Amino acid sequence: MLRQKDFTIILIRLLLGYIFLSAGLCKLTHGHFGQIIGPPLLEDTLAKYGLGLFARIVAITQVVCGTLLLSQRFSTIGAVMLLPMNLSILAVTISMHWVGTPYVNGFFIVLNIALLLYDWHKLKVLINPVLSAEARPTALDAYNQNVFNIAGTTFAVAALVASRFSVAFTNVFAIAAFAAMGYSVIQVKAITKMQALVVALVILNMIIITLASLLGTIAQKLVLFNTLLIFALFAASFIKLPKRKILPVAQ
Rank of each mutant, 00 (worst) to 15 (best):
N205Y: 06
L51W: 13
L25R: 00
A180F: 07
A235R: 00
P84E: 04
L82N: 04
K124H: 15
D6E: 15
N149G: 05
G24C: 09
Q195V: 04
A151F: 07
F234R: 00
V167C: 05
L215D: 02
R136W: 07
K5S: 14
V63W: 01
A158F: 14
F225L: 15
A177T: 02
L90D: 00
K243N: 14
V157P: 00
I208E: 01
K27I: 10
I94Q: 09
H30Q: 13
F234N: 03
N112M: 06
I191V: 15
S237Q: 08
I246R: 07
H97S: 14
D119K: 04
L82M: 12
C26K: 02
I208H: 00
M81A: 14
S166P: 03
L68A: 08
F74A: 11
L123D: 01
L215G: 05
F74K: 02
V80A: 03
P39Q: 07
G182Q: 01
S22H: 09
Q62W: 09
A176P: 07
T67L: 09
L51T: 00
I230G: 02
C65F: 09
D119Q: 08
T93C: 05
P137D: 13
L25H: 04
L41P: 01
L140A: 05
I218P: 00
I209M: 11
R56P: 02
A59V: 08
L115E: 02
I36Q: 06
F74P: 06
V188F: 06
G24Q: 03
